[in-house]
């Protein structure tokens, strides 16, 4: 039965993505999916035997982490496209994705310790993924500081370079931190044999959460891009009005 649900969802995804081009439809689907996700987390997904109720943080924690990585990947791609095509649109995507990425990164860094404290007894263990998240937070906060708000063609270029460098550095940081510290518990999702440590109910809940977070990410991206584009349009208009007044 669950297999049919999965296949149906996958097939429905493509027309949904197309329809989500419409802002209202996107917001509605996002709200519905988020509500379904929350209901699944608290009413459907079984409580994990060893970790207890705190394990439920995992759904939002890991979804935030995956969304964050996707956001920073988007920053890298958009930065490369900006340097190549010199188009403002790509620069807007890079800036918006970076800001939202930092928001999700902060959420991961907050929920991580809240999950670790009852389970491992400490607020912070320097395990590779959390440490990588911390370093990425530092890099992309520096990215945002490099930007601030005024549009300056050169500043956008420097930020694009940092966006590319930051993401290229990710595997190197990950590798170096892993060699440095080996306290990380074996990941729950995929274990060596390829079987998941989650029951199928938990996996379904997690996937729905992930989809909800990705929809949320794209919605926030839209809104943020609209802010940047409006600001740019305002500047152009002000410039035109000034010219006309002077002329």
């Amino acid at each position: 039965m669950q297999k049919w649900w999965t296949i149906m969802l996958f097939v429905m995804a493509f027309p949904c993505i197309y329809l989500c081009m419409n802002r209202v439809f996107h917001a509605t689907v996002m709200c519905i999916t988020m509500n379904v996700a929350i209901m699944l987390i608290f009413l459907y997904a079984p409580t994990e035997k060893m970790q207890g109720i705190v394990q439920k943080i995992f759904y939002f924690h890991v979804s935030s982490a995956i969304t964050m990585f996707f956001a920073f990947f988007l920053v890298c791609v958009a930065s490369i496209m900006y340097l190549w095509k010199n188009s403002d649109w790509w620069d807007t995507i890079a800036l918006s994705a970076a800001e939202i990425g930092v928001v999700f990164c902060t959420l991961v860094l907050i929920t991580g310790p809240l999950w670790a404290r009852p389970i491992w007894g400490t607020w912070w263990s320097w395990d590779p993924t959390l440490t990588l998240t911390l370093v990425l937070w530092l890099i992309y906060v520096a990215y945002l500081m490099l930007r601030i708000e005024t549009y300056d063609p050169k500043r956008a270029r420097f930020a694009a370079i940092l966006g590319i460098i930051g993401f290229v550095d990710v595997p190197l940081i990950r590798w170096s931190v892993e060699k440095w510290r080996t306290l990380h518990p074996k990941p729950v999702l995929i274990q060596e044999g390829g079987t998941t440590g989650l029951t199928s109910a938990m996996l379904l809940t997690f996937l729905v959460c992930l989809v909800a977070f990705l929809l949320l990410f794209f919605y926030l991206l839209r809104e943020r891009m609209s802010v940047v584009q409006s600001r740019h349009a305002l500047e152009v208009l002000r410039h035109d009005i000034d010219e006309l007044c002077v002329g």
Binding site: I139, A142, M145, I161, I165, G166, D169, W175, S176, W180
Partner: peptide
């Protein structure tokens, strides 16, 4: 690389360590 970038920004003294130190973490650790 970051020195040349930070040169063009207003708060050069702040930006350079903020850019340089996190990115060079793999080298530092290894």
């Amino acid at each position: 690389l970051f020195g040349m970038i930070a040169l063009h920004t207003r708060a050069c003294e702040v930006m350079l360590p903020m850019l340089f130190l996190p990115v060079s973490i793999p080298v530092t650790i290894a």
